[in-house]
Design a protein around this nucleic acid. Structure first.
Length: 1282
RNA sequence: GGGCCUGUAGCUCAACGGUGAGAGCCGGCUCCUUAUAAGGGCCAGACGACGGUUCAACUCCGUCCAGGCCAACCA
């Protein structure tokens, strides 16, 4: 057939496609759209997004599965406080891929995304936004306006993250981002807003009221942790805690942020530990009644000296009495500390983390002896036990401060009004902690611990047991309160404050030494400010029921197994302290704790406070303020108005001003979002979740912890029988590590190395990223790539080009080696296989609906790839069900490689064959490749939803409404289809969009052949493939593997012998250890022959005449048999005569007699390998030996030259950019006799291979022609288009 | 000081009580290709150190060294 006629056909194809816009059920032309080999991944993704939107594919999917069995997933809420970076996309890819997989297996899902909305992190950003620095300025600004601004920020970023997630292909029941922005704008106004919810309902109300109800089951959409339902369900939880007596108020010293004006929980403190240096000080306390004698005391927090109350020693420790020569003063301190090398190990090795090396510029610490030596020397006058010092009284360093004289301390403790700070100054026993370790140890300090019960945790505990007063010097702002003389108003963390302390001490002649002291110190996890320890009233959950939680932990499967998350969670549960749930801030859960205002009701009276369990309960109990509150969300400041009355005292009760720990917000989600309080039956259907997945470092003490503890408590009084496994909030947890830069270092927003989501998406492509995330081992950090912050780029987004993010950050170049690799090794070969198929299928007018050639009648290689496809289907299902995406994708990549580099390469010629030749064989090839490609799109759809959709659309479902997405890659003449033509994706007008019937009948007629799609509109509406046992043939797969092995061996031999593959060789001989292998190779001899370019393949029983043998002991079998005799056997085998051992090769045993011992060697006991003989090169692997003849006859050499010549001409065709059907004329300039003979002999072959009309010898070549190698000879060759 | 994990090729990672310890990336050489800005082949190691158990140890045990993680941290 002529190529010209194909062009005609292409023209007809175009017409058919145009006609296709009118659904005609009788005439369904079947035609694939031409596919460019440039896949244009990113642009294709944009097309697919539009296609999904316009055809509401996701809605159809949900509709399709609505009544199916459930698969329950709970989304861990993402903090809606900033745009997403690439680190968020990893977990979100898991979420989407597994949801898509289970949807394709016919499961009903909830698809509810979550936004984390409340908490200090939002407050911090809003403070920055509004330029507010302190809590006072927030109050001045107006708490109401501030809280509104927090809501607005959350809504704004929820909208932003929604858009970014959609770009990732994350299918969730999203709210319309425009609606969220509209709501954000309406917050704080009284104007009614009308919105359309994701379920299509309309609602009109004030924005606040709408926002409070977001995510409810009737409306659909993401859940927001600030919703009333979420907050109220936490009230349910806290009420249950209270019913079990677990809620208490602690009057304790806690880490406190002066700037944040709040105490920090244990989780928060853990996030913010940093290495820092402080001026530590040695100070002396004058002993009363002992002239010129002092306690030597050391502290790293000089400001706490103002509030010193006592000095603690260890009674069992030995102390020295040291006289300083300078002034004759006597000092007491622990003997061991005199020469103690302080922080010696840390000086050498750092503080236990790479970033915690000894700070530069800080010298090695001096020992106390050194300090006294430098000050004029000393004498040790004796030793005594700590016990002997107990009761000694001393003068404190700041006894002149009013606070030190305040009765009962500061604030006054009514039980201790007889005491003051000063009156408590004496040496006390430090005692032991709950583990029995003495509080006071020798070592870093002096063995005498300055005790300030208002400034330190352990100090406070000790003070309580000893009945000491506490002096709390700091207000909420972290500054000194009244009563502290020169310190009033000074900030504790201010370095100047320490200097002032030193100055005062110097004046009083109490300062011994000051030094720079490095240590790990708690900092604010957000701002980096140092925390101080402050006496506070905070609310706690007593966690003495931790063992109940541990039981639940053991009911859960923790993945990846190598991390052993279960143990880590249990460890945390064992070590954690009571949960501080209060925070003295503004934006967050309103803790439902109401307190009796009457101060005379003591805190140890159980009626002092009440926990309210719901708004309804509150309304019933409210005696005032409800009207003011009504219509607002249960947040500050509105909720604070509501008062209740104490049933016992009749007093008014007021809500504590504190807000809640935000992990409560996230932990309640399995209850609040699944209607625990509103529709218990519905909740039972979805609880527990099948899967939860999040980034794990940190979450063991955060989200996982809160889910588990809230879940355990919530289930405590459930009336259902407590069947095992029913308490757990989720069945399986899949954790993953962190996203890092190319060097494995963390990426930071602050230094411009963090990659914004859209930068990666629009440069690398989302399918590529998804594959990268899914294929990566979740137990290991992902080295994503690099952001070149000095190389700005313009991104082509679905909305048009941008040069900066919405927030105004410039968009920069992102490079990623792993992404490049995935594109090169997986996605491009997949696409090219698809393009190969489509482009030939078009020219050949392959009809997917044609009567299938029975599989048994198809060639072996077709059955092979179909069999391997079944293997992949099986792996896909097992691994995805086990949440092991890497296991699946590894096999998928292998399969794609087999498909592309073996199946297609081997079968190219079957597709080119002209029409009238063996049509049946060609049809089999098309049908086979078509089935494989369609199945593959379905298998990979959950992982790479975009490229698979494009392929599927063209392969299976071209419709009038969905012009094939590959249209964008059409060749120019087709694309000129123009406005409304098939070349331009049809944008359905808004009005029509919702009118689209769920499954247009004409869809059934697409390219949905028996071997193809099921006629679904989208690949994501298809059923996930299941194994067809009839197509499985494991032996065939093995056979082919053997052939591939022989080919590999042969290529290796050619390489070794320096014989290029185009040079035909006369013969390949092989021999196998077993007859099955022999038969297998014989069956596939033609494949091997062609691949290795040999004239003949001969199977032999052995290759004895061509090779020598090496014999080695099989240690695995011989070891157990002969043990110590092994070395003798090994030696013998390497030296003994080949003929003696020959029977082994025939499968017979041989008996060796060595040093008087008989060893019977079975064939399995000896490993045999080959060495080659002359004129042959030989190799062996896995029991197969092959030998390749290297004898080259003149005939063979000529044939090799002919093939070189063809190859060179093809190269020229390619360089000239010719179409595959163009004919040419070939010229060459040579007088080389052998070459000319070869060309003459192979003239017909050369011309048919290269579509050459003529081959002409010319005397001289044009000067620009570069000679090409034919055989060994360089010869100028050039071509002309005919 | 505690608990856990890891030390293998220039880099990132495998495997296994037993035959020449495998991949991928990078680099060099080379081959193949009218689907492939693809692909194939070849080229690299005292398996952290030292002891022990064993016929046999990279693998099991012990000690040490180095790195990481978790928890804690001291006035």
């Amino acid at each position: 057939m002529s190529y010209a006629s194909r062009r005609d056909r292409r023209g007809r194809a175009w017409n058919a496609l145009s006609a296709f816009r009118f659904p005609l059920s009788t005439f369904v032309p079947v035609m694939f759209s031409k596919v460019s080999t440039d896949a244009e991944f990113v642009r294709g993704e944009h097309d697919v997004l539009r296609f999904w939107r316009e055809h509401r594919i996701f809605d159809r999917l949900r509709e399709q599965n609505r009544e199916k069995p459930r698969w329950s997933f709970i989304d861990g809420p993402i903090t809606a406080n900033n745009p997403m970076g690439v680190h968020h996309a990893w977990g979100r890819t898991y979420k989407d891929a597994y949801q898509r997989y289970f949807a394709m297996t016919g499961r009903a899902l909830r698809y509810q995304n979550g936004f984390d909305c409340q908490g200090l992190w939002v407050e911090v950003e809003v403070e920055k936004q509004l330029g507010l620095g302190t809590k006072n300025s927030i109050v001045a600004h107006g708490m109401e306006r501030f809280v509104d601004a927090c809501k607005q920020r959350v809504l704004t970023f929820a909208a932003r993250q929604t858009e970014q997630s959609q770009r990732l292909g994350f299918w969730m029941d999203w709210d319309d981002p425009a609606t969220l922005r509209k709501l954000a704008a309406g917050i704080g106004t009284s104007e009614p807003v009308t919105i359309t919810t994701p379920t299509g309902k309309t609602a009109t109300a004030r924005a606040d009221e709408l926002v409070a109800r977001l995510g409810n089951p009737e409306w659909g959409g993401s859940y927001f942790t600030f919703s009333t339902e979420n907050n109220e369900t936490i009230w349910t939880f806290l009420k249950k805690c209270h019913q079990r007596g677990k809620i208490y108020r602690g009057h304790d010293v806690m880490p406190w942020s002066g700037r944040g004006g709040s105490a920090y929980s244990q989780m928060e403190v853990a996030e913010g530990r940093k290495l820092t240096t402080h001026k530590s000080v040695f100070v002396r306390f004058p002993l009363k009644g002992r002239d010129n004698e002092f306690l030597l005391v050391w502290t790293t927090t000089p400001w706490t000296l103002t509030s010193n109350v006592a000095a603690a020693v260890n009674p069992l420790l030995e102390y020295v009495r040291l006289r300083a020569k300078r002034d004759g003063a006597v000092y007491y301190f622990a003997k061991e500390n005199l020469e103690f090398q302080r922080l010696a190990k840390e000086f050498k090795e750092g503080f236990g983390r790479p970033e915690w090396d000894w700070p530069k510029g800080v010298g090695k610490l001096k020992s106390i002896a050194q300090i006294f030596k430098e000050q004029g020397g000393f004498d040790v006058e004796g030793t005594l036990n700590g016990a002997q010092m107990l009761g000694w009284e001393y003068s404190g360093p700041f006894d002149d401060l009013a606070a030190q004289e305040a009765p009962g301390g500061v604030p006054a403790n009514l039980a201790l009004v007889a005491q003051t700070g000063v009156s408590c100054h004496r040496v006390v026993d430090g005692g032991r902690d709950h583990e029995g370790t003495p509080l006071v140890l020798a070592g870093e300090g002096t063995g005498i611990v300055h005790i300030a019960p208002g400034c330190g945790d352990v100090d406070h505990v000790l003070g309580k047991t000893l009945g000491l007063v506490a002096i709390a010097p700091l207000g909420e702002d972290g500054r000194f309160v009244e009563g502290f003389g020169p310190f009033v108003g000074k900030e504790a963390v201010d370095r100047q404050t320490a200097e002032l302390v030193f100055e005062e001490l110097r004046k009083k002649n109490l300062l011994v030494a000051v030094e720079e002291y490095p240590h790990i110190y708690p900092h604010c996890w957000r701002t980096g400010d140092e925390l101080v320890f402050r006496l506070v009233d905070e609310w706690f959950i007593n966690m003495d029921w931790r063992d109940e939680i541990k039981e639940v932990v053991r009911e859960i499967e923790w993945l990846p197994a190598s991390i052993d998350g279960q143990t880590r969670e249990i460890e945390w549960l064992s070590n954690m302290r009571d949960w501080m749930i209060s925070k003295k801030r503004f934006w967050g859960l309103a803790l439902p704790i109401w307190v009796d205002e009457d101060e005379s009701v003591r805190w140890d009276d159980p009626a002092k406070f009440e926990v309210i369990g719901s708004l309804a309960e509150l309304k019933e109990r409210a005696v005032s303020g409800w009207d003011e509150f009504a219509g607002h969300t249960p947040h500050r400041p509105w909720i604070d108005k509501v008062k209740i009355r104490s049933p016992r005292t009749g007093n008014l009760m007021t809500r504590i001003p504190d807000v809640g720990n935000p992990w409560l917000d996230a932990g309640i989600v399995p209850f609040s979002t699944m209607q625990y309080n509103t529709n218990r039956d519905q909740w039972r259907k979805w609880y527990p979740a099948d899967l939860v997945t999040e980034c794990f470092p940190g979450q063991f003490r955060n989200w996982f912890y809160s889910l588990l503890s809230l879940g355990t408590m919530m289930m405590w009084d459930e009336q259902d029988p407590p069947e095992p496994g029913k308490r757990r909030p989720f069945k399986t947890l899949l954790g993953h590590r962190l996203v890092m830069n190319e060097d494995g270092k963390p990426m930071h927003k602050s230094d411009g190395t963090a990659i914004w989501f859209e930068e990666a998406a629009e440069q690398l492509g989302v399918d590529t990223m998804r594959w990268m995330y899914l294929a990566h081992n979740p137990a290991v950090d992902l080295r994503f790539g690099r952001r070149e912050k000095d190389k700005p780029v313009t991104l082509q987004t679905p909305e048009g080009p941008i040069t900066e993010t919405v927030e105004g950050f410039p968009t920069c170049l992102v490079t990623s080696k792993p992404a490049d690799e995935i594109r090169r090794q997986v996605l491009i070969p997949l696409w090219n296989t698809y393009a190969f198929f489509v482009n030939y299928a078009r020219l050949d007018e392959f009809d997917p609906q044609s009567q299938p050639v029975p599989v048994v009648e198809r060639p072996e290689i077709d059955r092979w790839i179909l069999s391997n496809l079944q293997g992949l289907i099986e792996v896909a299902n097992t691994e995805l069900q086990a949440f092991n995406a890497p296991g699946f994708l590894r096999e998928a990549a292998r399969f794609i490689d087999d498909l592309s580099n073996w199946y297609v390469r081997r079968n190219r010629r079957r597709f080119w064959r002209s029409r009238d030749a063996d049509d049946r064989d060609k049809l089999a090839a098309y049908q086979t490749l078509y089935t494989v490609l369609v199945t593959l799109t379905k298998l990979l759809a959950p992982a790479i939803p975009f490229i698979t959709e494009r392929m599927y659309q063209n392969l299976c479902a071209p419709t009038a409404l969905s012009p094939p997405l590959s249209m964008t890659a059409l060749s120019p003449p087709l694309r000129k289809g123009g406005q409304g033509g098939a070349g331009e994706p049809v944008s359905t007008p808004e009005s029509q969009r919702h009118a689209t019937p769920p499954n247009p009948p004409f869809l059934r007629g697409g390219n949905a052949g028996a071997q193809g799609g099921n006629g679904e509109l989208s690949v994501h509406l298809c059923e996930f493939p299941v194994v067809d046992p009839a197509l499985r043939d494991p032996q065939l797969s093995e056979r082919m593997a053997l052939a591939q092995l022989v080919v590999n061996l042969g290529h290796g031999l050619r390489e070794e012998a320096k014989l290029r593959v185009r040079q035909p060789l006369p013969e390949l001989r092989f021999a196998c250890a077993n007859s099955q292998s022999h038969a297998a190779i014989e069956k596939l001899a033609d494949v091997i022959q062609e691949e290795l370019n040999v004239k003949k393949i001969t199977g032999r029983d052995n290759l004895d005449d061509l090779v020598h043998y090496n014999f080695k002991p099989n240690l695995k079998t011989l070891g157990p048999k002969f043990g110590k005799g092994l070395s003798a056997i090994g030696k013998a085998l390497s030296t003994i005569d080949e003929n003696t051992l020959a029977p082994l090769r025939r499968g017979e045993s041989v008996t060796l007699s060595l040093d008087g011992t008989e060893y019977q060697l079975a064939p399995d006991d000896v490993l045999i390998s080959t060495q080659q003989a002359a004129d042959w090169v030989a190799a062996d692997d896995q029991g197969v030996q092959i030998a390749l003849s290297t004898v080259l006859t003149p005939e063979l050499l000529r044939e090799g030259m002919a093939r070189d010549f063809v190859r060179q001409v093809q190269q020229l065709r390619k360089a000239a950019d010719l179409e595959i059907q163009n004919r040419i004329r070939v010229f060459l300039a040579t007088d080389h006799a052998e070459v000319m003979a070869a060309i003459a002999e192979w003239d017909a072959y050369i011309r048919s291979e290269t579509l050459a009309d003529t081959i002409t010898g010319v005397a001289t070549a044009p000067p620009e022609v570069k000679p090409a190698l034919i055989g060994e000879t360089p010869i100028p060759i050039w071509i002309e288009k005919a």
